[in-house]
């Protein structure tokens, strides 16, 4: 719902902590050979060991600081204020969207996004109300990282940045550009505004983070995969998915299947059908309103802004021992 504005917040946060980030990136390149050795399984994640450490750190920061603050914010703030805050930051991000529309030569879309911005800035009281949405103008999600992708810049390595969370090497210059182009970066008073945007982002990511908690066996890998796939989906405007390499991979594996395996596995299904049913649920009342956002078994965390969470809010594993 609010991923685009979260993205903008993510970007602002990136700017604030730019020096930190760059410092870490340089640091990472330095220790690349050291961390590559044993368990680099994924080619997009050559620094997995290092990234996992940062991920664990972010997770703690989230658990001790970001989540409590965001929870309190949600408790004390009326819903309409929360929505207004989200809409406000989201609207400022529209300028970025228009710029990147143009940079990607999506001129028709840039026109629509411009009308959207104008409508919300005027009728929508400086962006507090999303009027454009109610007349069917959905916000497009464009940022400079996607523009770089369109221009042919390769994605680069996956990195987990302290406090900020996942990013790819392509995402770093993208974030710098987007932050520079976003008025929220310059809105005074800067510190409270930035703080509010961070809290707002963390609060909006709650559903997605809870989903990762529940669904992932390895939250680090889950976050990484869904982040990379989702970014790729955005960069290609959804055109890459079914024609992707994965389909071919799977096809190839299926061809490798031998009948014996199939038969054996089939006989197992009998066991599955007769499997013991887990105990009944307690139907938590709180799930009623948020349930449907979390219903999507494979909803990318980004849908709720998880991976763009400037607090670096990593999901806390639910008792998953590491």
């Amino acid at each position: 719902m609010n991923e685009s504005h979260k993205n903008s917040l993510h970007i602002q946060a990136n700017q604030i902590l730019l020096c930190l980030m760059l410092g870490f990136v340089i640091g990472i390149s330095g220790c690349a050979t050291a961390s590559k050795e044993s368990t680099a399984i994924n080619k997009d994640d050559p620094y997995e060991n290092f990234n996992r450490k940062v991920y664990g750190f972010n997770d703690k920061v989230d658990g001790y600081v970001a989540k409590p603050v965001a929870d309190t914010y949600k408790q004390v703030t009326p819903d309409f204020v929360e929505t207004g805050v989200s809409n406000f930051f989201n609207n400022l991000k529209s300028i970025n969207v228009v710029l990147n529309d143009i940079l990607q030569a999506k001129f028709e879309q840039s026109g629509l996004d411009t009308s959207r911005f104008l409508m919300n800035s005027t009728l929508g009281m400086a962006g507090l109300f999303d009027v454009a949405k109610s007349v069917g103008l959905e916000q497009n999600d464009e940022d400079f990282e996607q523009t770089l992708a369109v221009w042919g810049v390769p994605q680069g390595s996956y990195l987990v940045i302290p406090f900020l969370g996942p990013v790819t090497s392509r995402g770093i210059p993208g974030a710098v550009f987007d932050a520079a182009a976003n008025p929220a970066t310059y809105v005074s008073p800067v510190v409270p505004i930035q703080a509010l945007s961070l809290i707002n982002t963390r609060a909006n990511a709650e559903g997605a983070l809870k989903f990762i908690d529940e669904a992932s066996l390895d939250p680090y890998v889950f976050t990484r995969e869904s982040f990379l796939q989702w970014r790729n989906h955005l960069a290609t405007d959804g055109k890459s998915e079914t024609s992707s390499d994965l389909t071919d991979d799977i096809d190839a594996e299926l061809l490798d299947d031998n009948q014996a395996t199939d038969k054996k596995a089939d006989s197992n299904l009998g066991g599955v059908i007769g499997a013991k049913v887990p105990s009944p649920d307690k139907n938590r009342a709180s799930s009623a309103s948020t349930g449907n956002k979390n219903t999507l078994q494979i909803l990318p965390p980004d849908e709720n802004g998880a991976d763009k969470n400037p607090t670096g809010a990593a999901p806390k594993p639910l008792g998953v021992s590491k």
Binding site: E225, S226, N232, E241, I250, I298, L299, P300
Partner: peptide, 10 residues
């Protein structure tokens, strides 16, 4: 594949 995220790949 939901919104471009493949369950199987994940």
């Amino acid at each position: 594949i939901a919104n471009g995220v493949s369950d199987l790949a994940l």
